[in-house]
Design a protein around this nucleic acid. Sequence first.
DNA 1: CGCTTCACCGTAAACGGTTACAGCGGCGGG
DNA 2: CCCGCCGCTGTAACCGTTTACGGTGAAGCG
Lengths: 347, 347
Amino acid sequence: MSEPAQREAVNHGRATIRDVARRAGVSVATVSRVVNDRPDVSPETREAVLEVVRALSFSTNRSARALSKGRTGLVGLTIPFVLGDYYSLILSGATEALHEQEMRAVLCPTRHEHDREAALVERLMRGTTDGAIIVLPSESPGELSDLAAQGFPFVVVDAPMPLPERIPVVSATHWAGARAATEHLLQLGHRRIGIVTGREGWVATEERRDGYQAALAAAGVLASPELVRSGNFEIPDGHAGARELLALDDPPTAIFACNDNMAVGVLRAAAEAGLRVPGDLSIVGFDDSELARVTTPALTTVRQPLEEMGRMAVSLLSRLIDGQRVETLRVELATRLVVRGSTAPPP
Amino acid sequence: MSEPAQREAVNHGRATIRDVARRAGVSVATVSRVVNDRPDVSPETREAVLEVVRALSFSTNRSARALSKGRTGLVGLTIPFVLGDYYSLILSGATEALHEQEMRAVLCPTRHEHDREAALVERLMRGTTDGAIIVLPSESPGELSDLAAQGFPFVVVDAPMPLPERIPVVSATHWAGARAATEHLLQLGHRRIGIVTGREGWVATEERRDGYQAALAAAGVLASPELVRSGNFEIPDGHAGARELLALDDPPTAIFACNDNMAVGVLRAAAEAGLRVPGDLSIVGFDDSELARVTTPALTTVRQPLEEMGRMAVSLLSRLIDGQRVETLRVELATRLVVRGSTAPPP
DNA sequence: CGCTTCACCGTAAACGGTTACAGCGGCGGG
DNA sequence: CCCGCCGCTGTAACCGTTTACGGTGAAGCG
């Protein structure tokens, strides 16, 4: 009686499956079967074991289980930042979906520092994680290919650059969204429409600009290069870009900012220039983040289904982890124009 | 030669320490020493082993290591939501600090659903996690006490209710912040100052209201109950509260909203009532979230050092995990009034 | 009554590391 | 020359689960 008690004292005070087995007078296999809800245990035995489990407040050591089963129930979630609606929403969708599958996310903000991400993938993932969701990876397509070649399951969300076919990526219909936004402005009667783009070289940036230009072209409106400014998705970029645009000899009557952050910057520039929004200047953003609802006027913007993207990534990933064949590795979720108060016909 | 190759094929294709040992012609102990940067290995052996490590792109299985060492390098991070600046900032601070200690956060959003949290603590933690950071726990003091009694290291951030002394909690100086906010309004000349409080029963709510009343009392201003409205930290609450306040026979000339979300609601109500801010109505918020900088006018608010709170929690926790004595289990970080454009002298 | 089947349960070998302990050769000192 | 020490390395016992496999007794069947 004292011997087991003493044995139970090791390991940081936590009872092991062996302690339970001994105390219940059964084998460890039986205890394992009970705690895993397997059928081949008699009701009496099961109850007896559960009794002891409660008494010792036993819970299974996940590391041991992971080692034994080769599954940790954890997935790495690599994301540049955790701040800001864009990231939060993806994170939120992903963690929710993971939760539903009894899995958890191991969070790894990278700050866009490449080595941090590489280290993550190299070290953290393997053996601690069953797979990964990589948001906005700063790694080269080659590096991601290597990782995939090693058989590590992962899916990327919103790849900034084009990736090989066999790498799963979920993103949004940037092109269609930008086109819809621009068409909205055109329909309101705008003809000089400026744009503040996102970071150069990113596919989101290019697709959105292309969508903008496609809408212009379709309407037979000249796409003047002087109306295009490039930014980096931050408020000051929108501010600076808009200032330049508004200083033009023939300034635009509407500005399409490639995300809501920059749209806020544009809003600010308009205020500084003494322009009323939407009376003197129409503004449309992209993302439909919290910001868009909080500004005055509220922003007309293109909604990205960010939470849904997180969920979708989880759904793809869990199938990959289970070794199922996944029919399509490319998923593009639809964007949608949300009209609010920042757009109106030109003066 | 074919035998090791075949052996290396098991376990999802990943090389084990034994594969490396065999190929390098050394023992597993030596390999372990090399990969753990332990000193007692000759340079030649080390290099030879590293060679093989690279060749097989070996990396240590964390589950196995965790099982063996009794440390996972993971901490559970329980948080109601992941959306919104308040949570994001704490999250951001915590993950950053964890990263610096080579640890990672296992993210568990609870949505304030208690069972979800309890399950977390019961199951996820033990054996998969070395400790936990619990933000805004929805658990009873008793439950938390039990957990602490079991020797599981954790620290709570921003406890909604008073907790026993021996439970570590980091929070902010709500009282002082609210008092500073109110004093600011008093100094501007306001005498009728409304307040929209947070959720009833939370210590943050009570302390902030007390701070508000203390400032009023110190200035010899009557704290009229009709000027107090209670909300739940969301935008609509601020909106509703402000509407009621502004509908009073003798409406306030300033409103203190107990967080920035609600301040946005107040702002909206003011706009609807045709009041200019800060000309007709002054508003001060609490938190200093992104929102506060984005509204027009930008919000005067009380800054909570949320990221810092996350970092502090990690710092406390890691000391607890290491079994160090922690001198003080209660940490209150200072808040600071940030004056922006939403406050001015009364009309 | 003998044999199969079945429900239930135990034994022991993984899983992939870490580490206490022991062994071994070489070297310096007594 | 012997001893002790030191630097390096190997052996093997863990860490706590899972699970393939085999064993047992009872029930069913011809």
